[in-house]
């Protein structure tokens, strides 16, 4: 598990932290994730996807559960989007080499795409919730989300 931690903790912690936005909560969630990964490892099916996908989804789901269960959800919904984006921005540490990839991705995504992908990926929003939040037709949200993911897919290819 030490090796596992060394390999995945930064990626998992990064995602969890972006979702819950608090260090102590992120630590709790990371730990819960490890326990859950340990206990449900039998249900991991290699044919359904990469181990990292599976592990990342467990962490992400736990983190989203966390912000839904607490008042996070309410708060972030009542917050203007700009503010929550600013909050995310503040959470990012100063320049790190591992974020070169992030800068490149952010540059390639247009602001609308980034906003939607962030809400979906880190905000725990569903596509229809995003549509509601941004006062956009669901179709537009779906299109932008697909476009954003296409851009990312092209970047890593």
């Amino acid at each position: 598990m030490t090796l596992f931690y060394e390999k995945y903790s930064a990626a998992l912690y990064g995602v969890i932290f972006r979702i819950v936005k608090k260090e102590e909560v992120a630590e709790d969630v990371l730990q819960e994730s490890l326990v859950k990964i340990w206990h449900s490892f039998q249900s991991y099916d290699a044919s359904k996807g990469r181990l990292f996908t599976w592990v990342l989804n467990i962490s992400r789901n736990l983190a989203i559960d966390k912000i839904r269960s607490r008042q996070y959800r309410v708060n972030s919904r009542t917050q203007p989007i700009e503010e929550s984006a600013a909050l995310r921005q503040a959470a990012e540490p100063s320049f790190r080499p591992e974020h070169i990839g992030l800068q490149e991705m952010t540059r390639q995504l247009n602001p609308e795409q980034k906003q939607i992908i962030d809400l979906l990926y880190f905000g725990g929003f569903t596509q229809s919730e995003v549509a509601e939040e941004l006062n956009l037709p669901l179709g537009t949200v779906k299109t932008r989300a697909r476009a954003a993911i296409k851009v990312l897919a092209k970047l890593i290819r």
Binding site: Y13, V15, G101, M105, I149, K150
Partner: peptide, 20 residues
Amino acid sequence: LEDVQRALNAYGEAHALTPP
């Protein structure tokens, strides 16, 4: 599906943070 998952993984990984 694999493309989508890879893209999202990469996006998540790009946000990697060294834990305190």
